[in-house]
Design a protein around this nucleic acid. Structure first.
Length: 718
RNA sequence: GCGAAAGUGGCGGAAUGGUAGACGCGCCAGACUUAGGAUCUGGUGGCCAAAAGCCGUGGGGGUUCGAGUCCCCCCUUUCGCACCA
């Protein structure tokens, strides 16, 4: 709360226009009560489920992390290498929405970089799921056994984007964690397999996912049947196959996949060519994997067929035998929301011996976070709340018996995934968001944020919004109609960070230069969407500008405006208006500086009518100075309350006289003032009359004339 | 490897295919001054003593009357994703 107060003080000192009555704090029960309510809506609609799964574990933060919170194998918060653990966690089924999250990206007005980042993250691949029956060792296949004891079908399912190359699948690889490994490993291979699996599980994700290391793996002794060729092929395990993508198993086609080629070469596994590129035939040897276009070879009935065409054909052929299915696979994973930490909304779920998993009834929310002294997490994988029986033992709302509370809390990103719905309704304590208010204010029509949230907050917020729409709770499915990523301000050549000591503390700059200078400088230092370099030296520009503005406005006189100034005023209003709409704040400020210079030119006291609109234009950038000047100009009410944004007259934005450019063969040879609207003929005559221009025409014939009205004439000679 | 963005003076950066370098910082000169890290005025891409002129937007080609801008190839930087089958 002390930090929140400090930030609010800073935002206020900067003069940002927030409504303090509508603030929300996600840590406050009056807010997280509704975060828990959101969880329950997802639970009721089958989008929240608890399951055992490999999850990312940060040994330093001592909690589980969502995939989106692991950056390059490191914890997003503390940069510790993340480990894989098998834990029972609550997941939100964001993957159900993968297709829609991807599809909608085409229609929303978002920064391209952000859109692309989400597109890549969702990672759609089209291909097929194929079945490779296990030939050896024999694994029980009793389809009539009760479901709970029926063993998995004795097949290995793989996902591939290249079903066309199935004839070249000479071996298979399972992820070391694949559940089938236990059952298919032969006795003589068990020791080696177990050793490899132990080694793989001990490895952190950074070293595990290094792509430059040499491939490792071991044979399980099992043999599967290639559904296309009918041949028996060996089944290996190797850590280059990841459990979390596809089915955790691959058919290896060393002839046409670089990784498989490397692996096969290393372990002496057979390599078969099944695609022939330009100039190759079925027997052309492969010195590396061939991944280009071509025709199928060594592929039975499909020989000679084009690669692209055969993807569908081979899938269809195998599908007829019940061994394949066309499939779209996404890289996106379900969102792990369980966190083994103290701070966070307790997940509103109870476990009852009689009734099983029971959601906390909505009228019993919030499930309050208890005050405890030992709130720090530990390596156990269990939340600090799990140490407090007095808190987690409770009564089942269904049967009245004894029940345990879920002791994990939810991810902070869930808090922020719906806050925009809460803002306008913040004063309502009986509903999470009022339908009428929501209809009036949402969706957010302009959202500006950091690109670092592209696959975190921005993705989660879209998912939650889509889900709430499907539950009939809101009537839109995209939360932010327009999104623009602001750039990053770097200082001393690097991103600001506390450890580097290059953090910009607004308080220091506000006390030294004033909030208006600080704000104006931040908007002026570079294109808003690209960020820029924060340089101490650059601040004096906006500082001088605001000082000059002050002096100029206060020295203004009541008299008729000079025609040239008036034209410049209208042009400036137009430019500032348009630039602000396009978030081109740096050029908007430059235009105002230019205008101020024009107003001051000649050393005469400026016209009041020339400076009053400028005060209004600068107000979004320098609100304090603008407000004060507005009052000193004799206006009784706040500039932000009653003063309208200045309007311009398009006809007055242009000058009567234009500086006309004369080119000869595309090179500028003269500049001459001409009246606006001059005809091509008149311009041509004036240009030809110019002595300097004549020198370059040099007696040659003018073959062609290019005329751009009010700008330029180009005489082509030769 | 895939995807995206970007390469322009000493610096930050401007330029609907039509005057490259707006605006600002810095620098130079001058004015006012006891003083100047204040303020004001003027200048400031390179070559050239200067004018005229020529050159100039990462490199190389191309399209065009005309290219920083469009097309092709290449180089560099930054960011995101990455053994994704």
């Amino acid at each position: 709360e002390a930090n929140i107060d400090n930030m609010r003080r800073q935002l206020r000192a900067l003069g940002l226009g927030h409504d303090p009555r509508r603030g929300v704090a996600t840590t406050d029960p009056s807010y997280y009560r509704w975060t828990q309510w959101i969880f329950l809506q997802l639970y009721k609609n089958g989008l929240a489920e608890k399951k055992e799964a490999p999850v990312n574990w940060c040994p330093s933060c001592q909690t589980v992390l969502a995939n989106e919170q692991v950056v390059g194998g490191l914890c997003e918060r503390c940069d510790t290498p993340v480990e894989m653990r098998y834990l029972s966690q609550w997941f939100f089924k964001i993957t159900n929405y993968a297709g829609r999250l991807l599809e909608n990206l085409k229609h929303i007005d978002w920064s391209d970089t952000t859109r692309k980042a989400q597109e890549n993250w969702i990672g759609k691949s089209e291909g097929a799921e194929l079945e490779f029956p296990i030939a050896r060792p024999k694994v029980a296949d009793d389809r009539h056994a009760p479901a709970e004891i029926q063993p998995e079908k004795p097949v290995i399912r793989v996902f591939t984007t290249r079903p066309d190359t199935v004839f070249g699948a000479t071996y298979m690889v399972l992820a070391p964690e694949h559940p089938l490994v236990e059952r298919i490993t032969t006795d003589e291979r068990r020791e080696a397999v177990d050793a490899y699996r132990r080694q793989a599980s001990a490895q952190d994700l950074v070293s595990r996912k290094k792509t430059d290391k040499t491939k490792t793996g071991v044979d399980t002794g099992a043999r599967a049947v290639n559904p296309a060729t009918g041949q028996e092929i060996p089944v290996w395990i190797a850590d280059y196959v990841l459990m979390e993508y596809g089915t955790g198993a691959i058919m290896a086609v060393p002839g046409h996949d670089e990784r498989d080629f490397e692996f096969a070469t290393q372990f002496g596994l057979p390599i078969v060519r099944v695609v022939a590129g330009e100039g190759d035939d079925a027997s052309t040897p492969l010195s590396e994997a061939y991944t280009g276009p071509g025709k199928l070879v060594n592929s039975g009935p499909f020989d000679g067929m084009d690669v692209e065409e055969s993807k569908r054909a081979v899938t269809a052929w195998l599908a007829e035998k019940g061994l394949a299915e066309a499939r779209v696979n996404y890289r996106l994973h379900d969102w792990t929301i369980s966190r083994q930490r103290y701070w966070g909304p307790p997940i509103p779920i109870l476990y009852c011996d009689e009734c099983g998993t029971v959601p906390v009834p909505e009228d019993q929310l919030p499930v309050l976070l208890p005050q405890i002294a030992d709130y720090k997490p530990d390596a156990s994988g269990i939340s600090p709340l799990a140490r407090h029986e007095e808190w987690y033992i409770t009564t089942c709302p269904t049967c009245g018996g004894k029940a345990r509370r879920e002791t994990d809390v939810s991810d902070t990103f869930l808090d922020s995934a719906w806050y925009f719905l809460r803002y306008p309704s913040a004063k309502r304590d009986d509903v999470p968001f009022d339908p009428a208010i929501t209809k009036h204010w949402l969706p957010v029509n302009s959202y500006i944020g950091g690109n670092e949230h592209a696959v975190l907050h921005l993705l989660y917020a879209r998912f939650i919004t889509m889900a709430l729409k499907d539950f009939g709770l809101i009537d839109f499915e995209e939360p932010f109609t327009r999104f623009r990523a602001h750039g990053l301000i770097v200082k001393d050549g690097g991103k600001m960070s506390k450890s580097k000591g290059n953090v910009i503390v607004p308080d220091d700059y506000i006390s030294h230069w004033g909030a208006d200078t600080f704000r104006t400088y931040l908007m002026f230092l570079g294109p808003y969407q690209e960020g820029g370099d924060f340089r101490e030296a650059g601040i004096s520009g906006p500082y001088n500008f605001i000082n000059r503005l002050w002096d100029t406005v206060l020295s203004a006189e009541d008299r008729a405006m000079d025609a040239e100034v008036e034209q410049k005023l209208h042009a400036t209003i137009k430019k500032v208006t348009e630039d602000c709409e396009a978030l081109s704040f740096n050029t908007a400020i430059a235009a105002m500086m230019e205008y101020l210079n024009a107003v001051r030119a000649g050393g005469r006291a400026p016209e009041r009518a020339a400076v009053e609109p400028l005060v209004r234009l600068i107000a979004p950038f320098a609100p304090h100075v603008a407000e004060e000047l507005w009052a000193r100009l004799g206006n009784a009410d706040s500039i932000f309350r009653t003063a309208r944004w200045p309007e311009y007259d398009a006809a007055k934005t242009v000058a009567d006289t234009v500086e006309f450019v004369v080119q000869v063969n595309g090179k500028v040879r003269a500049r001459m003032p001409m009246s606006r609207g001059i005809t091509e003929e008149a311009a041509r005559d004036a240009a030809l009359a110019d002595e300097h221009v004549q020198r370059f025409i040099d007696g040659k014939q003018v073959r062609k004339t290019i005329f751009v009205p009010d700008r330029l004439i180009n005489l082509v000679v030769g």
